[in-house]
């Protein structure tokens, strides 16, 4: 899966989790950029991403991803 394809799928997940069809995430996107992405919604998001891509984040990744770019790096690494 290319980075672009990952982003395409990831945007769908974000739009579904945060109920907002206008969300488009990029490498630099952080939690404060997305309305509703707080510590309560964080796990819902990660679980949804895990399901969409058929991967599992470790607990370290769950708490230490710095931005969406890092999330995409991990996804690509796990898919590869």
């Amino acid at each position: 899966m290319t980075r672009e394809e990952v982003y395409e799928k990831l945007n769908e997940v974000f739009r579904d989790v945060f109920d907002d069809e206008d969300i488009t995430v990029s490498d630099e996107t952080v939690a404060s950029d997305v309305d509703g992405w707080d510590s309560l919604e964080h796990i819902n998001l990660l679980v949804a991403v895990e399901r969409a891509f058929g991967i599992k984040f470790t607990m370290g990744q769950t708490t230490h991803l710095k931005n969406v770019g890092e999330m995409v790096d991990v996804i690509i690494e796990k898919l590869g």
Partner: peptide
């Protein structure tokens, strides 16, 4: 507590199943 209790609980299989 967030990193070592709250997040792991929410990410655990039983909590996902409840969800």
């Amino acid at each position: 507590l967030r990193d070592f209790l709250y997040y792991p609980l929410l990410k655990s299989a039983p909590f996902i199943a409840i969800g």
